[in-house]
Design a protein around this nucleic acid. Structure first.
Lengths: 235, 235
DNA sequence: AGAAAGTTGAACCGATGGGTTCATGTATTG
DNA sequence: CAATACATGAACCCATCGGTTCAACTTTCT
């Protein structure tokens, strides 16, 4: 089993403090390069053909790497898929959260802020990599339930929570009228992304930036008609 | 090619006017039965395991039929999938439209009508067969673009159109305030079904009727806050 | 330079699965 | 009853694919 020739299943964390230390150049340079290349190529291939249709040969070719190298770094096709997906969600979820960052402005009109944030959320939502990630996740949800859970938590759930936080602040400063920021966030996101399912034909059609802008504006419009603070009925 | 022994690729429409006529009992009785059984078993299997993972042997077993019988009725796995999906959307889309039927009442409070209709739409949306249909469609969208188009048109698009029609009538009778019933329909459906993606974990978790009721009520609430007719500013 | 680790390409194994063939069986029809 | 049409199950063919093995080669560390 634990022989020494080509059976050292690299695995392990990304932090490369191998045996020696001294020299500043990171120890597993060639290794980490290959691993990155493999994961990116894998995601590209999976995104193009789906999990079942992608064969490891092709992924190896796309990564410019030999097949045994893949099996050396990642044990089998399943973990290859898992790691590729996790890497992808790491790449993608950042952009979603960044889209909400500007909602931190302590003052200013709510409408233009929501419109800009909404547009950026939509843009990220329709980005090919993000779409591919959701597509793969949905397609293989049954086969990888744990992965589904993890990625949804790190993706959609984080977006939801961050938005709810922002809306709660708006409510507190009287710029929004709601007692349930979670519901408001859920509905704002629904108004944004819900219509895209049909409009993008489940992600198979790309949609113009203008259309994104239109949908975003309509969402904000309706959202504010429902959630803008109205005349207070307190005495 | 057109031999006679077991190579007669049945195919054809459902209307079974074969050679003979006279007798009232439909001619291809055994045949149509088998075909139905096959299509239903196929959809069940596909819904359980996905397209790639379902092998024809298993479908045959589930249908209580021999494998060559499947290839005799439907040419290959692809058309088997297509036909099974089309049959399923035929079964499902009816329920969705029926959910909107009660919005035809010419008078009565809009809110309870929308709540009831919304609940029924949601219920249908979360029905296992409907969910399986959307899941399979989404998963195999890249492989069957034409099927995607057809099913979306007969499913989601029809629901949207029907709802837009109902809302247009409401607007005309002054019970709703909008000049764009298509947008209103799009957003109402988004408010209904959008939140379910996260809540059902992409369809892998079943959600209680109470939760459905809650989401539906919230959707109607927000929708009406945005679309209820307000004080008219006409002279 | 020499050892150790890693990469490569090619061949190989075993399993799975789509699709076909065929001899046999059974129900319907004239 | 005989003919026709269809269903059956089992075997078969062939391609693909996940995963492994191995000998040769390159890189890195000491």
């Amino acid at each position: 089993m634990g022989s020494c020739i080509g059976a050292t299943r690299y695995d392990g964390g990304v932090n490369g403090a191998k045996t020696s230390n001294a020299s500043r150049r990171e120890a597993p340079r060639g290794r980490i390069d290959k691993r990155q290349a493999i994961l990116e190529a894998a995601f590209r291939t999976f995104a193009r053909e789906g999990y079942g249709q992608s064969c490891v040969r092709e992924i190896a070719a796309e990564a410019g790497v030999a097949k045994p190298t893949i099996y050396n770094h990642l044990g089998d096709k399943e973990t290859l898929f898992r790691e590729a997906m996790l890497a992808a969600v790491g790449r993608t979820s950042g952009a979603g959260l960044a889209a909400l960052e500007q909602l931190r402005e302590p003052d200013g009109d709510v409408r233009p802020m929501l419109e800009e944030a909404g547009h950026r959320v939509l843009k990220n939502h329709c980005d090919p990599e993000s779409q591919a990630l959701r597509w793969l996740l949905n397609a293989e949800a049954a086969r990888f339930p744990d992965l589904l859970e993890t990625i949804q938590r790190e993706g959609a759930q984080r977006l939801h929570d961050a938005l709810a936080d922002r809306l709660a602040r708006f409510a507190l400063s009287g710029r929004l009228h709601t007692s349930d920021p979670d519901l408001a966030a859920e509905q704002f996101l629904a108004l944004l992304t819900g219509p895209m399912e049909l409009r993008t034909r489940l992600g198979t059609r790309k949609v113009s930036d203008a259309e994104l802008r239109t949908v975003g504006r309509a969402a904000v419009d309706t959202f504010l008609r429902a959630y803008a603070p109205r005349a207070v009925d307190a005495p």
